[in-house]
């Protein structure tokens, strides 16, 4: 990744409205060449509107959007052949075979499957046994790999993937990210969106998005490290009981279930962890919860996302 080079994506104050709904609200960010950049956020955050604009399918209402140095509005024909785009919804021809789909996309971009093979080979290898199967009859995982081949066959300089792993099981998701790692290692710039917080750690940098705005852009490590308050994992057999008790603790800033534990954020920055643990333990015990396990933990991306999300919704109670 070359920090000094001009950005692969350069977006300034980009806004897009649909009627009276502002889907994307004054976004500013850049993506560096060779970076694997992730947009993390729920449905309705504006990810798809952003991606469709980046690949020249929508025009901005305000602001500037440049990809590979080209303006998405004025230079769209130059740009089209240089970007790869995998939309969120399966958009291949279900009645054509896997190979026919691939040939079609290659020919649209004035190339051939043979020419593109060096790029897609590691992915196509897994698909080859199903080359003659109708795309509509492929399994979910295979459809996804075919869509990726079709987005890559013309050797784009930058790849946009809109929610490639939505609805995919945890193990298949991990395998898909392994594929993206290999593509990035080959020098490709990749911009990807996902609603899954756990995928943030697979990106070089991420933007946390919510309701058309970016909450935060940074490396996953920096986002975790910048969590502003002491965070603890609390474990007790009666999770619901201790959840209710902890939320009544006067110094609780946030209390959320996280798998088999609760994450407790104390409102007091700069206080000693051991002192907080002693106080919390005393409080829950006084409220009838027998000696819970409590330990200080580093924040995850999901903790950070919830913190910034709650901070952004004025007046609403946190946890």
């Amino acid at each position: 990744m070359d920090v000094a080079a001009p950005p692969a994506v350069d977006v300034r104050a980009f806004t897009r409205r649909f009627g009276d709904v502002t889907a994307v609200d004054s976004l500013t960010f850049d993506v560096r060449p060779g970076e694997l950049f992730g947009f993390i956020g729920p449905d309705g955050a504006g990810k798809t509107t952003l991606f469709r604009t980046l690949v020249t399918l929508l025009v901005p209402d305000a602001g500037s959007v440049r990809v590979l140095g080209y303006d998405v509005v004025t230079d769209l024909w130059t740009l089209r052949s240089r970007v790869g785009y995998m939309p969120g919804r399966f958009s291949l021809y279900p009645d054509l075979s896997a190979l026919e789909n691939l040939r079609f996309f290659a020919s649209v971009f004035g190339t051939s499957v043979e020419e593109g093979m060096s790029i897609i080979e590691p992915i196509w290898r897994q698909l080859a046994p199903f080359a003659d199967r109708r795309a509509g009859a492929l399994s979910g995982g295979m459809k996804q790999k075919l869509a990726l081949c079709c987005a890559l066959v013309h050797a784009p300089e930058i790849l946009f993937l809109d929610e490639p792993t939505t609805g995919v099981d945890a193990v298949s998701r991990r395998e898909f990210w392994d594929l993206l790692d290999r593509l990035r290692d080959g020098g490709l710039t990749i911009v990807v969106s996902t609603p899954y917080m756990d995928e943030a750690s697979r990106c070089d940098r991420v933007a946390l998005m919510q309701q058309g705005r970016i909450l935060l852009v940074d490396t996953p490590a920096a986002i975790r490290a910048a969590y502003p308050r002491p965070l603890f994992a609390v474990q007790a057999p009666d999770r619901l009981g201790i959840l209710a008790v902890l939320r009544r603790f006067p110094h609780a800033a946030a209390v959320w279930p996280f798998g088999d534990v609760l994450h407790y954020t104390d409102a007091r920055a700069g206080m000693d962890d051991g002192a907080i643990i002693d106080e919390v333990r005393a409080f829950v015990q006084a409220n009838g919860v027998p000696s819970p396990g409590i330990s200080a933990i580093p924040a995850g991306i999901e903790d950070a996302f919830m913190w910034h999300m709650a901070a952004g919704t004025a007046g609403e109670q946190v946890g």
Partner: peptide
């Protein structure tokens, strides 16, 4: 059937409180 797909982490947890 996958009731919480695509929702933000706070809404996801509120939904689970409704399940309980």
């Amino acid at each position: 059937d996958e009731p919480t797909g695509g929702v933000d982490p706070i809404t996801r947890r509120r939904f689970w409180e409704l399940i309980y």
